[in-house]
Nucleic acid binder design. Structure first.
Lengths: 198, 198
DNA sequence: CGGATTGGCTAACACTGTTAGCCTCATTTC
DNA sequence: GAAATGAGGCTAACAGTGTTAGCCAATCCG
């Protein structure tokens, strides 16, 4: 009974297809893997071309034999991260029922961001170069919010609210001493009752 | 009238005092003013020490006779911006009544961020150096959300949701063709009915 | 008058992403 | 087998960043 879809009964079924990323060459795959490790373990400031070269045993300029530049490397990381988070959230929605789907989704979103804070920041901060992203990857990552709400703009608002709540948490922007579980509970409650205005 | 506070009737009265920023020396005030202009009109990437010096008629190293560094300059900008947005939002709440306060607050927050996107990003992105900020400035800027909701954690969730919704708008992260007025309407609606769970 | 302080300057350092040009080695092609 | 080609490394260098050190003129104050 994974995904019931009774009249008005969420969660909805999947619609967006899971995107397939263009498989990188072995060396490029290696570079991306190292880049992700550096980003996650050492932070965004450590993600430099020279640091990557160091870990790969080559000099920074040699990286340009494989990649057009640092921004392209970042796009690859974002691409993969969006597919991953989409997989995670779709799985959560698959396993949830109407009563708990919204809370489960928000909890999973928060947990994922806290487990990969630097990757999360890379994915969500700054303007997005859509043309460089693999097609459909944003739809894939965002659809779980639609499946959980049943209305596109409510889904967008929920995603945005979740993002705001978690990015402020990652950056330590709440007043010291705040019990963030209660903040998340308040957010969940706000979106948990039927909303007419759309 | 201005701020009724009947039992359960929002908006609440002000509590946090309006912070007073330490007045900078004339030259420092000039630097801050130029910095803000560069940031707002030319973007964060143009906010460099050399660019500031250029506009002030001096060389970059001379700026260090007045400021400890770029990050301190940024803190000054954030300080002033937080007081400003606090003034704005408190004024909105002052003028609103219980029925419309939430919508008015969110609309004002959104409008202000869109009018000063680069300043908004500076204020809200990255970790905050609380020790450098003027005391009480965060409380001042955040209190309108408490006045509009009457519950601290709901206020935090509302602020976080507003931030998420507007920062994604500024960075153009919504799917192309989205009617963001509807997204904001959905957000407003979600927070507009009484919430028990806290 | 004589220090002391203020506020400018140049030179330089360490770091960033990135380009140009060279060279070696493996592979493919005649 | 020889020759050409391309992949993938290298060093040197450039323009840009924040920042420090050290020098120097002017101004202020006792």
């Amino acid at each position: 009974m994974g995904t019931p879809q009774g009249p008005g009964g969420l969660p909805l079924a999947r619609v967006a297809p899971r995107p397939v990323l263009a498989p990188p060459s072995p060396r490029v795959g290696e570079i991306i893997a190292v880049a992700r490790e550096v980003l996650e373990k050492e932070g965004a400031a450590a993600l430099t071309m020279r640091r990557l070269g160091e870990l790969l045993g080559i000099r920074a300029p040699s990286l340009y034999k494989h990649l057009a530049g640092k921004s392209q490397l970042e796009v690859r990381l974002v691409d993969a991260a969006l597919v991953e988070v989409g997989d995670l959230l779709h799985g959560v929605v698959d396993r949830a029922d109407a009563a708990s789907v919204l809370g489960d989704l928000l909890a999973a979103y928060r947990a994922h961001a806290r487990a990969h804070p630097n990757l999360y920041r890379l994915v969500t901060s700054g303007p997005m170069r859509r043309d460089q992203l693999t097609a459909g990857v944003e739809d894939w990552a965002g659809e779980p919010f639609y499946r959980a709400t049943g209305e596109p703009y409510l889904a967008q608002a929920l995603w945005a609210a979740a993002h705001g709540t978690v990015i402020l948490e990652l950056d330590g922007r709440y007043l010291p001493g705040s019990d963030l579980d209660r903040t998340w509970a308040a957010l969940t409650a706000a979106f948990s009752r039927p909303v007419d205005g759309a």
